Amino acid sequence: MIEPVFSVVIPVLNGAETIEEELDALAGQQGVDFPWEVIVADNGSTDATRDIVRARVEGFPAALRLVDASAVRGAAFACNAGAVAAVGSSLAFCAADDRVGPRWVAAAHEALQGAEAVGGPIRQLRTPHDPNAPILRYSIEHAIRGDCPVIVGTGNLAMRRDAFLRVGGLDFSMTRYGGEDNEFALRVMQAGVRPAIREDVTLFFRSAPTLRTEIRKILGSAGAEVDIWRKHPDQFPFENGRGWLLAVLREYPGLMLHDLRNRNPRSAVRFTLRRLGNIRSKLTGRRRPLPPPRLIDQVEMPRDITKAP
C-alpha cells in the first residue's frame, strides 16, 4: 500500500450532528490524483461520533482513521495528536462542523509544492449550501492583506509537516475560544512562514447556533486575545501598556458611530462585547499567571481506535 503524502486532520468532540457533512465534502473531493488520508482525532466524544466515522471507513476514497485524542481536552491537543498520527509530508486541518470546498485537498496539495503553508477564503456555511456565500472578514486573505493582525489558524490551513513541527504545533495550554489558533498563527508569522493564498482552498464556516453561544464565543475570544498579548509582550507592547484602556475609551465612540452610519449594528455590538471581554480579562488576568506553553513535543502517539473494541 502506498503511503499517503497528504494528511487531513479533523479534531472533534461530540460532532455527531455535523461530521457527516464534512466527511461527505471530503469524500467528494475533485482532482485528487495522489494518496491521502483523513485522521479524525476524537477528543473524548460521548455521542455517536466514533460510530459514524467507523461506518464511513469502508469505501471512503482516502484512508480514513480514527484516533483517541482524549488525553487532554481541547481542539489544540486534538490537532496536535492528529498531526502526530499522520504520515503525510503535508498536513491540513478542518473542523468537524464546517465544510471544505470541492477542490480543497487538491488545491492545497498543489500549493504546498511551492509554499510552506496555504489558506484561502472562509465563507458562511448556509442551508441549503451556497458556494458563493459571503466571505467572512477573518479569512486568511484579509490577514495577509493587513486587515487583521493574525491569520486564522487551523480552521482552514494546510502546512508542510516540517514547518508545522518547526513552529511547535498548537499550544494546548491556550484553553479559551480561538486562542490556540491565533497564538499558533502568530508563531507561524514570527517563524517567517508566509502562507500563500488559493481561492479554491475554500472552507465554509458554520456560525454559532444561538445568540447566547455567539456571545460566549466573542467574550471567550476576547479573553484569549489578552492571553496572547501577555504571552507575547514583545509583539504587543502597546496592548500591555498603561495607555491601552485610555486609547480604547477614546476610539470607541468614533468606531461605534462609523458602524451605525453604515447600518451595521451587528458589528457595533460585536466590537462592544469584544472590548468588554478584553477589559475584563486584563483586570482579572493580573491575578492569574499564564501556564507554560504545551506544544506538540509533549504529545505522544495517539491510540488508533478505527476498529471498535
Rank of each mutant, 00 (worst) to 15 (best):
Gln29Arg: 07
Gly88Leu: 04
Gly241Tyr: 13
Asp259Pro: 02
Leu170Lys: 00
Gly192Asp: 14
Ala62His: 02
Gly178Trp: 00
Gln113Arg: 15
Ala185Asn: 03
Leu273His: 13
Gly44Leu: 07
Leu170Pro: 04
Arg275Trp: 07
Gly74Pro: 03
Arg73Ile: 14
Ala196Ser: 12
Met159Leu: 15
Pro102Leu: 02
Pro195Glu: 04
Pro209Ile: 02
Val193Cys: 09
Ile10Met: 04
Val299Glu: 06
Arg242Met: 15
Pro131Gln: 04
Phe6Asp: 13
Ala92Met: 09
Ala55Gly: 10
Val201Phe: 11
Pro253Ser: 12
Ala55Ser: 15
Met189Asp: 11
Glu180Trp: 04
Ala92Thr: 08
Thr210Val: 07
Val84Arg: 03
Leu26Trp: 06
Leu125Ile: 03
Asp130Thr: 11
Val118Leu: 09
Gly243Leu: 15
Gly168Asp: 00
Arg286Asn: 06
Met301Trp: 04
Glu141Ala: 15
Thr175Lys: 11
Val53Ile: 14
Arg263Met: 08
Gly44Glu: 01
Met189Ala: 14
Val8Pro: 07
Ala76Lys: 01
Gly243Gln: 10
Ile197Trp: 03
Thr210Gly: 06
Gly59Asn: 10
Asn14Pro: 02
Gly155Pro: 03
Ile10Thr: 13
Gln124Asp: 09
Leu260Tyr: 11
Ala63Gly: 12
Ile10Leu: 08
Glu21His: 12
Leu125Glu: 05
Ala16Leu: 08
Ile140Gln: 07
Met174Thr: 08
Gly101Asp: 02
Asp42Tyr: 08
Asp227Phe: 10
Ile135Gln: 12
Ala16Phe: 06
Arg274Gln: 00
Phe172Tyr: 15
Val84Asp: 04
Thr306Ile: 05
Arg274Val: 10
Arg103Gly: 00
Glu300Thr: 14
Pro291His: 06
Leu112Pro: 08
Ile135Glu: 14
Arg65Leu: 04
Gly179Cys: 10
Arg194Thr: 13
Arg250Val: 10
Leu257Cys: 15
Ile39Lys: 00
Leu66Ser: 03
Asp227Cys: 14
Pro292Phe: 05
Ser70Trp: 05
Gln190Trp: 03
